[in-house]
Write a protein that binds this DNA or RNA. Structure first.
Lengths: 209, 209
DNA sequence: TAGATTGTTAATCGATTAACAATC
DNA sequence: TAGATTGTTAATCGATTAACAATC
């Protein structure tokens, strides 16, 4: 179960499996074979079986996989059976949008605070949550067991803030700033570089992939 | 120059090269070897040379690469020498945030309109731009030469809207909806599945990668 | 010219796919 | 039991890295 060295390629596919399994549940489908699932997802059945087997034998020969229990297993593998506490750093448009977007809570990702360096924003309420000054960040992270810091600040301040987060022993950074962060290896970073994504699109428009 | 069949793995790395080259320009550095760049970026020099050579011989033996001209070449490869016109579909928090985020324009990505199905939002102004009803979408796309549609609407409506976009011969869809879109192969789709990204982070927190 | 560094071929590594024996 | 489908090993494919001859 607790296999080591699962490649990030495999991990990246897990949320997609989860999504398809949720759909199957909604459709009231109880069991599915790797064959059928592969048709829906447009991946090989081989890949599905390989991916799942990294974490355990969830299927049954001659039967396939039970949708409900596979769903729960993958959710568990992804750590969705635990709650995660988050702070947003940067109360600009993107920070506010993420805070207002309710659906993360459904998955156990709970926003506990939002911070900004701009004094004009302090005390402003977003979804019943007051924007706090950066000076309070460090104490807040410790006192509230924050796991994940969401960086929605400009590139220029991202590096300095990251230093602080490392001192606080933050577990993970969800980075929307357009810069690569240097962190110790026990701090996880997931980058969401929106402009990179847009450039890829622009490339693919030209050379009709 | 116009090589075919460049893998998406390579394309995904181009925006990052561009970013580092921009930094080098800012630092006033004129030339750089693959060796030096590899140290900064934490990738192998081999990979840098391989990647660049897919598109042409931009370097010079014994010298390295000229920062300014390599920057321009990569920008060109990514299609950043052209303007792209975009519409946002879904004037919720995320749609508004993207519209307000100025930096895309710098790269030639110009927002031309924002649409929403909710009549209460129609006429509302976001950055001097009125939210338009969905009924006007199709004509707007044709008349304004829109290349890219940004989908910031819920899963449920995304599929139906995509149908419309395909009829309009949209070139690309930047998809923030939590669903896989089925499109003809001449329509490019780039998915930004935020919750998938967050789940990956959650996974990596547990199994300390 | 000598030194540096590319462009490119060859070797390695890892990820995906195919095949099939195990088994429900 | 016979049929279906997994778990898993082996084969293939593609991407990354190493090596080095070409050349500025």
């Amino acid at each position: 179960m607790e296999e080591k060295d699962i490649s990030q390629a495999v991990v990246s596919r897990l949320p997609r499996y989860l999504r398809y399994l949720a759909d199957l549940k909604d459709e009231g489908i109880e069991r599915i074979s790797s064959q059928e699932l592969s048709k829906r997802m447009h991946v090989t059945a081989s890949q599905i079986r390989q991916d799942l087997n990294h974490f355990g034998g969830f299927g049954q020969q001659g039967y396939g996989y039970n949708v409900e229990s596979l769903y729960l297993e993958i959710a568990k593998i992804l750590g969705l059976d635990h709650q995660h506490y988050l702070v947003i750093i940067g109360a600009g448009n993107l920070g506010q949008a993420l805070l207002n977007y309710m659906n993360f809570a459904r998955r156990g990702f709970i926003f506990k605070g939002i911070f900004d360096s701009n004094p004009q924003l302090h005390g402003m309420k977003i979804r019943d949550m007051e924007v706090k000054p950066m000076e309070e960040l460090k104490d807040f992270i410790c006192e509230n067991n924050i796991d994940i810091a969401v960086l929605t600040i400009p590139k220029a301040s991202a590096v300095a803030v990251t230093e602080q987060l490392i001192e606080c022993k933050i577990k993970a950074i969800w980075n929307f700033a357009h810069v690569d962060l240097a962190v110790p290896e026990d701090v996880q970073v997931e980058n969401v570089h929106l402009s990179d994504s847009l450039m890829k699109l622009s490339y693919n428009i030209r050379r009709n992939r």
